[in-house]
Write a protein that binds this DNA or RNA. Structure first.
Lengths: 111, 111
DNA sequence: CTGATACTGAACCATGTGGTTCAGTATATC
DNA sequence: GATATACTGAACCACATGGTTCAGTATCAG
């Protein structure tokens, strides 16, 4: 591990699992208790609990105990850093392609 | 695992590690052999080899054997799916916030 | 040809991940 | 109060991850 950006680590890490992306999509429609999510995704409550924990640690989900349920909603993190990172990357790739193109153009002229 | 989108899994998974994000940034400046990358990031060749393999599997890096070196360049995948996923998500969050706002507005009027 | 350099592959290690079961505790319902 | 429901936490499991070392093989330089 060389450069720490824990927000990016946890955000990308959370998004790397299809169940967790599914949970985010599900919570986009409406909030839900852990038990409901577990049933939707056909896994044990305890299993879903762990996914929710990962999403919560990444700031992508917020939870609150209501009666005997724990209600989950989409959390405060908007993935701005993640988007920004990818955008930066995209620009780098494009700059690199541009340089390559310029190089090819130059060598063509030299022929 | 519930909905398979292996491209997203591997892309987000690859980006979840700071060393690998660093390697992508480094390759954005110029291509490099595995050995150079290993030295830059102060790890063994074998260690770096594994990171490069992960990036290559995700389509983010391409490699080619040149003499005794293996040269690494930024690969074909442009992270379009990843960006698209995040964008979708952002829209969902915003729609949800809009609904919440509308609800608050309505209940305010009812007062 | 010899030696140094660059990589490859296998084996190992500690820790993390994605799940499970099982034994609690807390809350709701009758 | 008894029973069912919802969660929590600990323990376990198989497998993946992020590293290492070590023993090769391939290539370059003299």
């Amino acid at each position: 591990m060389v450069q720490y950006q824990p927000a990016l680590d946890s955000a990308f890490g959370a998004l790397a699992d299809p169940t967790r992306r599914g949970v985010l999509a599900r919570l986009g429609r409406s909030d839900a208790a852990i038990g409901e999510l577990a049933r939707s995704f056909r896994m044990t409550l305890t299993g879903m609990q762990k996914h929710v924990r990962v999403l919560e640690d990444a700031g992508l989900v917020a939870t609150k105990k209501v009666g005997r349920e724990r209600r989950c909603t989409l959390g405060p993190r908007r993935l701005d850093e993640a988007t920004a990172w990818i955008e930066d990357y995209r620009r780098t790739v494009e700059a690199r392609l541009d340089r390559l193109e310029a190089f090819l153009e130059r060598t063509k002229e030299e022929k």
